[in-house]
Design a protein around this nucleic acid. Sequence first.
DNA 1: CTGAAAGCGCTAACAC
DNA 2: GTGTTAGCGCTTTCAG
Lengths: 348, 348
Amino acid sequence: MVTLEDIARKAGVSHSTVSRALADSPLINPETKKRIQQLADEAGYQVNQVARNLKVRSTRTIGLVVPEVSNPFYPRIIQLVADRVREAGYNLQLHLSGAEQESEVASLASLREHRADGILLVTGEHGLVAKEQVSKMIRSGLPIVLMGWVEGADQIDMVTGNDASGGYELGRHLVDLGHRRIAVIGKPPHRGVYDRMLGFRRALEESSVDLPENVVLPARDGHQVRDCVHQLLALAEPPTAIFAYQDSLAALVYKHLDEAGISIPRDMTVVGFDDLDLATYISPHLTTVGLHTEPLASEFVRLLLERIRSKASDAAAQHVVISPRIVVRASSAPPRGTSLVQTHEART
Amino acid sequence: MVTLEDIARKAGVSHSTVSRALADSPLINPETKKRIQQLADEAGYQVNQVARNLKVRSTRTIGLVVPEVSNPFYPRIIQLVADRVREAGYNLQLHLSGAEQESEVASLASLREHRADGILLVTGEHGLVAKEQVSKMIRSGLPIVLMGWVEGADQIDMVTGNDASGGYELGRHLVDLGHRRIAVIGKPPHRGVYDRMLGFRRALEESSVDLPENVVLPARDGHQVRDCVHQLLALAEPPTAIFAYQDSLAALVYKHLDEAGISIPRDMTVVGFDDLDLATYISPHLTTVGLHTEPLASEFVRLLLERIRSKASDAAAQHVVISPRIVVRASSAPPRGTSLVQTHEART
DNA sequence: CTGAAAGCGCTAACAC
DNA sequence: GTGTTAGCGCTTTCAG
């Protein structure tokens, strides 16, 4: 590996002159500068960032911790964050903390050991696992921003999608369509996603629509969704609408309803949450709630850069809440035989 | 930031003793070792990997360069690679080279500057953009392994999906079902994906099925797919089967056929390529060709680790080819009215 | 078993 | 303008 010293020798100057030349310093003879740059180029010189970082005590690196990458929400965030971070002239160091966030703690530790200048932490379904650690890191002056809802973390910068309002919108939509027997399928209420349920419940309560516990079914994978769907269909009075916690689950609900010969939305309304690309790949297109991921990611990065730039680590924590919008598509309709709209649609 | 020196002072020993204690060296008094470890823990000491890396001249970091993350194939690879890399005790540094691979060169340069121990480079639709650079890096002893087909790169380690055989299988499948008018929709043939077409063509040629140029239509996004579909349907003799270069395009084909009132597979057979999760989310489930991504990713990492471990950089390059398998699902059937199978299916 | 000392490759005063 | 020097925080001989 060719070093500054090597090309200093070739150029017959000191290594600090070479350093200046390559840093494009103004206090150096333009001619020697050019000559050195040329030489360095020919020799295929590449700065050793490890050495450089040690000296300047900064890595210009931002760590991004994300649970996993098979849930399409995360790749979207990664892409957006990566772009913003690069624009700001930083390197990105991605860590996957695991679907169960099992290595969230390890990821944070590693980023700290590598002296990242700041950390963007996307929490998963378990919320903030490494809460203690994060507090400690912040106290020690390492800028960290969270994405996702975390209870009682008021002193940490955070961007959040307003899941409660999304859930509420969805609930209202179903009630307005005339649904009274509504079921919920999705992962057990955990932090973050739990709010979807709160908002949803609130909407139903406002209209005095009951949501008995036996139609609120936890599920995480294809098998469980299958069981849930069959369980619901076997009820004396099956629901007329199903709210799936996530679009990916909604797609599975589609699949199993389809196999059971149930038509969407004629026999069953299905709504999801996330507005993934998936929502328009499946048929009928899914009514869902979507976050504006661009502002979400932009704010995420902006907050961190702000922290990094202003050395004042005592500034008050900021919480940015991004509200989602409901996207009504073809998977939701009034319950069968209750409305003119429906018979009308059936004819078209 | 607390350093070795700091806790050396607290422990009343030299900093090299502390270093040994934390490295769990055997040549140190077990008691002082324990005492120091405890002290370091309390002080919240974290090694400075930047300094450490400079000293040991290795970062235990592997760079992974991937074009983007919105195409679901890449996240799958990222996830698998991340797991393998971590298991091997390395850190992963992810770089996105852009959908057009516009920053492939920059990514490689950055990884080199940061002294990654090896590089995993996933090529995109433009093949290997930074060919010159890669050759240079390899010559200088930096281990690099490629994923994706690259012509004339015999001296570089490489893992590849056998797209030609996948395309061939798909072609045979359609011909065997009885299709004679077959169309292709997909991105313009570029390196890598081009082989799908070669294999596909070969299968048709073997059975003397013609593939006129006016039914081989390039498309990359929803709009273009829409135009293509309409163009095909407007033909005097529309095709009875469509081969989409990728599952994601197939999903768009579904959408536009659906809007045009064409039923799959009754009126039109559709097949894709990739076997994404998507393939079973859409209805009817898509017949496609899938790579075994696990072995693909495992070999990818294995090849690199092998290079890194054996310092012999002159070892002959290895090319690993992973063959895909065809997954026949519900989207492919004999052309309308040609077979008993079909009328039978229509009744069920 | 422990300490002293060198040095990884670089930047940035500080001299000249 | 350029060279000399110190030192970022760590590992690792080499002595003792």
